[in-house]
Structures are given as structure tokens and as C-alpha cells.
Design a protein around this nucleic acid. Structure first.
Length: 153
DNA sequence: GCCAACGTTGGC
DNA sequence: GCCAACGTTGGC
């Protein structure tokens, strides 16, 4: 089992959307960055994913989701009405991937980015690397443990 | 293959 | 709302 972190704007999709319907898979789609897409492709069923809220009032890790369906072609790339439509994609040659995730855990309080930056031992985590905009990233078991400890959960 | 222009991300 | 940093595009 592997660990990941995925960013989302909570206006679009938040940990509350997972927690509200814990059994219902949420499709993680709309990723349009090649490196992030490649990481989506590496996700396996059962992997755990920190859900990170960005561009909002409480920036930070809000909880954990679990991968319920491994990567498949992101349907939104074929939908002309979707903001994520990509005319260069064909069913035979999809450019973008999605996975499904279900709720795993909602933290009582968000583990803030400020706090994350203050934690020792997170060197190499793309989230805190200067200028990194990677929206899906792997998290080592060591980093996962440090972050989980810091939530107090 | 270079690189300027552009659009996007995302913290502040 | 600002703007630095970044990834992608497309002309050459």
C-alpha cells in the first residue's frame, strides 16, 4: 500500500463531501498536469490519500481518503461541455486519468500548511518545496507518519 | 530544440 | 487582488 497527497479547492470538492457519504466513491478527475497524471496512474486500490485544501481560508490537510478504483481514463476529457475537455484525447488514446476514492477519515481540525512547514523531517515533500504546484504527489511512509502524528489523531 | 509568451497555480 | 513560480504551447 502506498501513500499520496492530493490537492483540491474545497469549493469544488472537500473532505466534507467525502464524509457526508462515506460509502460513495468520489471521482478524482480534472487533473491536467502530466506528472500528477502519472502519479494517479500509479495509485492502487487501498492506497491512502491526504486530502489537502488549497486556495481557501483554512489551507492544509483536512483528512484522508482511500483509493477504491485504480486509474481509468478521465471521462471529462471527452466531454465537450466540461471545463476539462481536451480535444486531443481520443478513447483509443486518452491523455488524462482519474481514480475513485472513498472517505477514510476527517481530521477534527485541519493540519495547517503553516504547521506542516514547521515540522522537522519533511525534507523532500513536494508540498513544501518552493514553487511546487504539483497537485498529486507521493508521500513516503516516514512523512506520512510525521504528518499523521501532527494531527493528533 | 530553443525560448518567449501565455495561462494557471496557489500562498499571501 | 496580487504576483512569483511554474508548465505548456507554438513560432522559428
Amino acid at each position: 500500500m502506498a501513500f499520496w497527497l492530493a490537492k483540491t479547492e474545497p469549493d469544488e470538492c472537500s473532505i466534507d463531501d467525502f464524509a457526508r457519504a462515506p460509502q460513495t466513491p468520489v471521482r478524482w478527475d480534472g487533473v491536467r498536469n502530466f506528472q500528477a497524471r502519472n502519479y494517479l496512474g500509479q495509485m492502487g486500490v487501498g492506497d491512502l490519500v491526504f486530502i489537502y485544501h488549497s486556495s481557501c481560508r483554512e489551507i492544509g490537510i483536512a483528512g484522508i481518503a482511500r483509493v477504491s478504483t485504480a486509474a481509468y481514463p478521465d471521462p471529462s476529457q471527452f466531454d465537450p461541455d466540461s471545463p476539462y475537455h481536451d480535444g486531443r484525447s481520443t478513447p483509443d488514446n486518452p491523455r488524462w486519468l482519474a481514480v475513485d476514492m472513498v472517505h477514510h477519515q476527517r481530521f477534527e481540525r485541519v493540519l495547517s500548511l503553516t504547521r506542516i512547514k514547521s515540522l522537522p523531517g519533511l525534507e523532500g515533500l513536494p508540498l513544501i518545496q518552493r514553487g511546487s504546484r504539483l497537485s498529486v504527489m507521493p508521500v513516503t511512509a516516514e512523512h506520512w507518519e510525521i504528518l499523521l502524528q501532527a494531527t493528533g489523531a
